[in-house]
Simulated scan of single mutants.
Amino acid sequence: MDPGTTLAIAVPAAVLGAAGFGLASAAQQRATKEVELAPTLSPRLLVDLTKRPMWLIGLVATIGALVLQLVALAFGPLAVVQPLLVTGVAFAAVFTALMSRRRPDLLTMLGALFCAAGLSMFLLLARPVAVGPDTDIDIASGMPLAIGLAVVAVGCLIYASIVTHPSRVLALALSTGILYGVTAGLMKVVTGQLRIGLDEPFRHPVLYVVCIIGPIGFLLSQNTFQQGRLVSPAVAVITSADPVVGVLVGVSWIGERIDTSPAHLAGAAIGAAVVVAGIALICARGTYLLHRLDESEQMPGAQRIRMAPS
């Protein structure tokens, strides 16, 4: 199949997948506010959420988006697909606005585009190249990254458990993105094993690790949506951290290689800075909208401005 045809399949699938992730984030964030606040990583939250139709809509959207993501990655390169998926932040802002019966916030969507542009630069310059069969992981060489990711993820969870500052939600989102990125990297190994035989993944521990980490990441994402008033910054952190961690997993655990020349590293660093700038813009805009919302709630009903945070 020629490159033009594969991109004709990959790009629409990635955009539709981003829309699905955006709808899922908006619906799940709305549904988590309708149930009792649950402790971080408490399975009781999922039990309560299964009784909410809006959350079930978000669950269906998540499954559909994951299928579309797999289709996009099967036909298109990571450097094309992942930036398109990051636009799920903009879709989340749009769906959140529609559910609140208001206009989407343009600055929030601009921040989402910053995230996509920065991630595009990062992936184009640091795009990993496979140097062997991706059917196993190198535990020894991957140990430093595993320890580092574990320290960051656990540190974020500890920080979120002891502070009340709004940044705690971003810490939860970063932990979620790390778990999603690790899951994506390990799923690459599982798909490689599937090319050998349908029963091959069951002969290795990677699949079972995915079955543990994946659900934990999903549960943590629901905690993130429930415990924060802002959905767009959390989605931006999750969708930006996911592919970056996935690339690191591919290089450290699976043996892929990236261009480490000074020029490429500098460009990748600039791309990462643009992503951070996009997240900062979304956070700043969300804080402003929350301030306006709080002010409007103190006004008489006739003067109240209809506004909801993204």
Rank of each mutant, 00 (worst) to 15 (best):
T135I: 13
V237W: 06
I254L: 14
A14W: 07
L66F: 13
G88T: 12
D2L: 06
S100C: 01
A19G: 10
M109K: 10
V67W: 13
A74V: 00
S120H: 06
T32I: 10
V89N: 11
V245C: 07
P104H: 09
I9E: 05
F218Q: 15
Y208L: 13
R195E: 00
S252M: 02
A27N: 10
V210H: 00
A236N: 10
G246I: 02
M187S: 12
E36S: 15
F114R: 08
K33F: 12
R30G: 11
A79K: 06
L37Q: 15
A26D: 06
L125Q: 13
G192I: 04
W253P: 05
S310T: 14
V169N: 01
L149W: 00
A92Y: 11
G142T: 06
F122I: 10
V251E: 05
H165R: 15
G217M: 09
L123A: 04
A268V: 01
A90S: 14
E256Q: 14
V86D: 05
L78M: 07
L23P: 01
L7P: 08
T5W: 00
I57N: 03
V89L: 05
R203S: 13
Q82T: 11
M307F: 06
L66M: 15
E297P: 09
P262M: 03
V209Q: 04
V60L: 07
D199Y: 09
P77V: 07
A74L: 05
V35T: 15
L41H: 02
I9H: 08
E295L: 07
T183C: 01
G118F: 12
G20T: 12
L98C: 03
V154N: 04
A24M: 07
E295W: 03
V86E: 07
L78D: 04
E200P: 03
V163H: 03
A61E: 03
A92K: 12
P243Y: 02
I270N: 08
L248R: 05
L110D: 00
P205C: 11
P262I: 00
V235M: 11
A116S: 14
I139E: 13
V163S: 07
L174G: 03
D105F: 09
S161T: 03
Q28S: 12
V276G: 01
V60Q: 03
L281A: 10
A93K: 10
S161L: 08
F21R: 00
L230F: 02
T6C: 07
I137Y: 13
F122M: 12
P201E: 06
V210Y: 02
I162P: 03
G111C: 06
T135S: 01
L220F: 04
A273F: 04
P128R: 08
P233M: 08
G286P: 14
H165W: 13
L56C: 12
A92M: 14
A173R: 11
P128M: 02
R52K: 14
G177N: 09
D259Q: 01
G88K: 12
I213K: 07
Q227H: 11
I305G: 01
V86R: 02
V247H: 10
G17Y: 10
V235E: 05
Q82H: 07
A302K: 02
V182H: 06
M143C: 01
Q298R: 14
F95S: 09
E200F: 05
L265F: 07
